[in-house]
Design a binder for these strands. Structure first.
Lengths: 196, 196
DNA sequence: CAAGATTTTGACCATTTGGTCGAAAGTTTT
DNA sequence: AAAACTTTCGACCAAATGGTCAAAATCTTG
C-alpha cells in the first residue's frame, strides 16, 4: 500500500523532530499529502502510527549487530560493525532520533522489546566478544559496555546533529565529514580495544 | 525565592520525561505543590520556564570542560574530565535528558548558544588537545571528534538509561555500576588515545 | 454501465491545555 | 489595626488537537 508508506515516512519525520506529543496528525497527513480523516482511514490512531514506525526502525537497527561473526578477525569485524553503524547514522538520522526520543522518555512503548529481544541479543553478542577477549585477541573490557560505547558514539552523530552542526559550523553537511568522523571513531575505539 | 526553585526542579523532571510538548503547566505546578495560576505568577509562560531550566543546565554542563588544564598530564587530565562527566550523568540524569531532548529536536532554543559559546569553547579546548598531540603525548586524532566521543559515551549512560536498565536487567541501579561503567569507558578511551 | 466496494474529505465534537482575571488569603508596614 | 503589598487560587476562555461521521468521489467488477 503506497499510502501507508507515505504516512510512515511523514510520521518518522514529524515524530523525530517534534517528539510524540509535539507531532500532530494534521501535520503528518499534510506531509503525506492527504487529509486527516484519510490518514485515519489507514491507521486507527496516532499511537498506532507511532508504534508502527518505531517497530520498523527497531528491526533495522538490530540487524547489523546480529551479523557479528565469531570466526572473523575481531578488530576487522568490529571495524565493519562500527563503519556500518556510522553509515546508518548518516543515512537515516531521523530514524535514529525517533528511537532516541522514545528511549529518552523512558521507552514506554519499547520497554518490553528492550527487555527481551535486545537483551538476549546483547547477551549473545557479549559472549562472542568475551570469547575474543579470552583468546587474547581483544583487551579485557566489559563487552556490554563496549557495545554501549559503540552505540553511543555512532548514534551521537545522528542524535546530536544539531549540536555537531553548530560546533563545527555546519562542516558536517560537507561530503567527507562522515568519513572523517568514522576515521576518528574507529581509530580511538579500535586502538582502545586492541590487546597491548 | 524558594518557590521558583521548586518550580524549576519540577519542570526539569516533567520536561525531561515527557518532552516540551508532553509536559503540562498543570503537572509542573502539581509537582511543585501549587496551583497553575500560582506557578504563572512566578513564570510568565511555559516557554520561559523551559528556557530558564535549560540555561541553568547548560551552564553546569559547560563548566567541567572549561577547566581542562594544558599544563597537566594529558591522559590524567582526560581521565579526570571523563570521570567527572560520568559522575554528572549518574547524579543528574534528568538534566542530561532534558538537554538531549532539546538538541534532538534541532536545538530551537539553544541553537544560538551552541553556535557561539559552545563553539568557541570547543575550539579553545581542541587547541589544547592538538598541542598535546603535536607534543607526541596523545595519538593523532581529530580533537573535535574526541570531544564528541567523550560527550557521547558519558551522556549515553544518562540519556539511554531506560535501554541500559532493560539490557542489563536493572543492574545499573545497583551501587558500583557507575564505577564499572567508568572503568570500561576510561579503559577504552584512554587506551584509544595513548600514543603507541 | 450499473451496482458494489474502496478511498477521500468537509464539518463537527469532546477534551486538553496554555493562559487570564478577579477576588480571597496572608504578610508587611506605618 | 488599617492600609498596602504579596501570594494563592477557583472559575473561566480560546485555541489546538485527536478522533468521528456521513456523504461524496473514485475505482472495481459483473
Amino acid at each position: 500500500m503506497e499510502n501507508r508508506a507515505a504516512i510512515a515516512q511523514a510520521a518518522v519525520s514529524e515524530f523525530s523532530s517534534r517528539g510524540y506529543h509535539g507531532a500532530t496528525i494534521d501535520a503528518i497527513a499534510d506531509k503525506a499529502g492527504m487529509s486527516k480523516p484519510n490518514l485515519l482511514y489507514y491507521f486507527p490512531s496516532k499511537e498506532v502510527i507511532y508504534r508502527t514506525v518505531l517497530e520498523q526502525i527497531v528491526e533495522e537497527w538490530l540487524s547489523p549487530l546480529m551479523t557479528l561473526d565469531p570466526a572473523a578477525d575481531p578488530v576487522e569485524e568490529l571495524r565493519r560493525y562500527i563503519t556500518l553503524k556510522m553509515r546508518m547514522s548518516a543515512d537515516r538520522p531521523q530514524a535514529s532520533r525517533l528511537f532516541a526520543s522514545e528511549v529518552l522518555a523512558g521507552a514506554p512503548i519499547l520497554k518490553d522489546f528492550l527487555e527481551t529481544r535486545l537483551k538476549s541479543l546483547v547477551e549473545e553478542k557479549s559472549a562472542i566478544l568475551q570469547g575474543w577477549i579470552d583468546a587474547g585477541k581483544l583487551a579485557p573490557v566489559d563487552p556490554v559496555h563496549l557495545i554501549f560505547m559503540i552505540w553511543a558514539t555512532t548514534q551521537h552523530y545522528a542524535d546530536f546533529e544539531a549540536q555537531i552542526d553548530a560546533v563545527t559550523g555546519a562542516q558536517s553537511k560537507k561530503p567527507g565529514f562522515n568519513e572523517q568522523a568514522s576515521q576518528a571513531v574507529l581509530s580511538i575505539l579500535l586502538n582502545g580495544i586492541k590487546p597491548r
